[in-house]
Design a protein around this nucleic acid. Structure first.
Lengths: 218, 218
DNA sequence: GTCTATAGACTGATAGAC
DNA sequence: GTCTATCAGTCTATAGAC
């Protein structure tokens, strides 16, 4: 029992610190100080710093993906196997955005950790991260079902841009807040999700080659 | 003369390594090995690792901003002080995207370094970076001139999303390449710029509140 | 200005007492 | 399982010969 408490304390402290300051700037000593445990406990429970990071990442990765897929399944089932594109994109970016910007503090840390992991591709994470490709492919497939006529290349770019907007909003919310002098409300999670979803869907559905040509000439 | 050569060799090697692997993962020893100079030369010429990073960032920051503003001025002058919104967005994301994904290797390193700097907000950079806000405000002002009726809050979100798409494309081009199995051509810089510009402009101009409400219900 | 050599302070990991 | 003590390795920065 006491062993589990130590293990959990380390995991929580590590996730919080990594999410805030990044992997290379947080030492094991920082973590054990935050967790109020002994330095040797980390290596006893996890073997090494890299294995601790990997365990955090795998756990959170599975949880986030499950949440996304469950939301996707719900909207596709409701539509007889084919959801509106808005709902698909919402299932993609909603869980992460709600987790990072919402009021729910515990999930916030988890999601921030995942964003950090996506930025600092530290070796233990890089290996595991390739699995995410197959996860995203399931969303690409759902998007294809929602937009049967849409070329694959546009599907992938749309997926990429949606994640880009969601992640950057979490990552750099401070700059947007300063730039807009508070005008952009970063506590209004639903509003942000709507903006990201709307922008992604527009880019996906209203991309006549004419618009591209026009932009190019300008 | 020989002193300048050493200085330049350090700057070039540092920028290349930082761009590739990030700040905290690159040591002064890595840099002097790459530059073929002595370890002590770094501290002689720059004082400290942080001052070396700061010098790189300031130099490149000024260059990138100048390039953006020069492109902005050109299109605004051509339109009598008011450019089409496509051209404004192009001036914002074009220089960075061309620099990072284009064939021009030297500028590529510079732009990649700036992306890295925007990710790893290391202390020496964090201080300087607040100046960027005022730079971006000039673009917000130009966007307002292009879209007189557009609410400020939408201007800021549009600016934010455009940078998000541009940066994420540079940062994570590898994943997009794998995900799309090469379908998304990351060497076609003009095509990418068009996609980013088109998506940003659509989000800015075709955001009737009806679309938001529709997406929310779905 | 450029070098060698090294100081001084960190890091992750471990041996061994309890 | 938890601790103290410490190892061996790394880092930045600097003193001093040339």
């Amino acid at each position: 029992m006491a062993t589990d408490r130590t293990r959990t304390a380390i995991l929580n402290a590590a996730e919080r610190l990594y999410a805030e300051r990044g992997f290379s700037d947080v030492t094991l000593r920082d973590i054990v100080a935050e967790a109020n445990v002994n330095l040797a406990a980390v290596n006893y429970h996890f073997g090494s710093k890299d294995e601790l990071i990997a365990e955090l990442f795998v756990t959170r990765s599975i949880a986030t993906n499950r949440e996304r897929l469950s939301e996707l399944k719900a909207v596709e089932d409701a539509g007889g196997g084919r959801a509106p594109i808005e709902s698909v994109m919402r299932a993609l970016v909603g869980p992460t955005l709600r987790g990072c910007l919402g009021p729910d503090r515990q999930r916030s840390t988890a999601a921030r950790f995942m964003i950090r992991a996506s930025i600092e591709a530290v070796p233990p994470i890089r290996k595991i991260r390739n699995r995410e490709i197959s996860h995203l492919r399931r969303f690409a497939a759902a998007m294809r079902r929602s937009l049967p006529g849409c070329p694959d290349v546009d599907i992938y770019w749309g997926l990429h841009f949606a994640l880009a907007m969601a992640h950057q909003t979490i990552r750099d919310s401070e700059r947007l807040d300063k730039l807009s002098e508070g005008l952009c409300d970063l506590n209004d999670v639903d509003g942000i999700i709507n903006r990201v979803v709307t922008a992604s869907v527009l880019a996906l559905t209203q991309r006549p080659s004419a618009a591209t040509a026009r932009a190019q000439r300008a």
